[in-house]
Design a protein around this nucleic acid. Structure first.
Lengths: 252, 252
DNA sequence: TAAAAACTAAGTATTACTACTTAATGAGGA
DNA sequence: TCCTCATTAAGTAGTAATACTTAGTTTTTA
């Protein structure tokens, strides 16, 4: 819970495989800041940007720690989670390049309601809450953009509420497979983002054994293939069809 | 799905029990517009406010209908829901005075992802999307306020995701009882908002029978009392204790 | 080659489904 | 205004389906 975790991450700047870029030359077209660079306020505030490197497995937002600012994921993959009863993780979402992380700390919250852990070596842009709030109070277009982002996140979350209360475990696992596949794509015939069975369970709201059992069944039905942790989708159409009745199409 | 439902509601202005008030003299301190009346842009735009009356049971937002604007609940109670598989309702939340309804239509959505039904005769303030967007693009404080509202809604929704995937049915029902009690208070020893067992089930993500069974059990344990539809909470502390491990405190 | 993760299977608990009875509510007519 | 009937909702119980727990073995990964 100590706030020094950010500094720890900041110091480790040895790895040169991740290239540092300023907002002006940043390749990340999906970034909200990049989209609003023509605004004077936004442009000024990018000067206060800090870069944070995270190694695989490193937690850069601690659940319950005071809110200091907002992160933009420049490169890498991150899982966002809440801790439940007996330490059981509820994975809220998986984030990729260009996405905002830590925005749940805004609002009335004093502390981050979520934790964030890098799933691979990642590069983050960081802006302090103070600086951000200044821009949000002066540039309505930027604020409106962030507001729309929240609105979309809210819709996604509520769709997930519905799916958790109305889908079976099998359906939720299929749904999770499709979500990860849609968002992160494939690589050599396998879903590009490699997750453990436990992580699938923590996202789908079930247990590791259930995930294993359902994946075994899907394998027997020749709908997927597996090789160790990696999962390949064979019949995307049939999997989609199985959950189509719930018309649950959640992008990103 | 026809857009004329609003006009139907608008015409029925016979009932005089609900008093019409303009934003300036409005008693609703919790309303976001009321809070921002000192802004010129907000003040001007309140002139475009329309008042809509809804009778008990009337649906004033149809799921899937094109987004036309935003509602502020001036008086009454409303349930917000999503329709799932086989017409099963998922109640997203119960809204009371001062709350915003239909905000889920903002974002990339073209149509309302939710439906809204009045649980009692209600009075709504309505603002068209066009007018609203104009203010949102000019007044950053108002936009920031709405953004914070979304941020809080997002937190609530994600807490609900966690509760659905980690709580038992009994816990979820207790949690729902506490939520409704906290939000709507008591009346003659019973929870002021009277809901059907089905509505409790649709909110808690279970079946009507399970709700009845759990309520019967709670009654036998002398934790609650019931009289017809009405439910009285006897031992608030014990009920709270039972779900305290999940540290699930969701206000409003 | 340890350690971690995947996988299997049996037993248990929980939850949903089906079918039914009983109580409460509301509308129309005397 | 009260009564009756129809309708709606509450409540009960047994069964089937689903999901979780536990305890183990095998495979994969670092």
């Amino acid at each position: 819970m100590l706030p020094s975790y950010q500094h720890n991450a900041l110091i480790e700047q040895k790895d040169t495989s991740l290239i540092t870029t300023a907002c002006g030359t940043c390749s990340n077209a999906r970034c909200l800041i990049k989209k609003n660079l023509n605004s004077a306020a936004v442009n000024t505030f990018t000067k206060h940007r800090k870069e944070i490197r995270c190694k695989k497995g490193q937690q850069f937002i601690m659940e319950g720690a005071p809110v200091t600012g907002l992160f933009f994921l420049l490169k890498g993959t991150v899982k966002v989670l809440r801790t439940g009863l007996h330490g059981k993780e509820q994975i809220v979402r998986f984030a990729k390049e260009g996405e905002i992380i830590g925005h749940r700390g805004f609002g009335t919250e004093e502390s981050y309601p979520i934790g964030a852990i890098a799933l691979e070596d990642s590069l983050l842009c960081y802006f302090s809450k103070d600086i951000l709030q200044e821009v949000l109070h002066t540039d309505p277009t930027f604020t409106y953009g962030l507001m729309l982002f929240y609105a979309n996140e809210l819709n996604k979350s509520e769709v997930k509420v519905k799916s958790l209360s109305q889908m079976t475990v099998r359906e939720r696992i299929i749904d999770t497979l499709l979500y990860v596949n849609r968002k992160f794509g494939q690589n050599n015939g396998f879903i590009a983002l490699v997750l453990s069975r436990r992580e699938y369970a923590d996202y789908a709201g079930t247990t590791e054994e259930q995930v294993i059992r359902v994946l075994s069944a899907l394998k027997k039905e020749h709908l997927i293939t597996t090789k160790g942790k990696r999962i390949g989708i064979v019949h995307l159409d049939l999997l989609k069809k199985e959950i189509s009745e719930h018309n649950f199409y959640l992008d990103s």
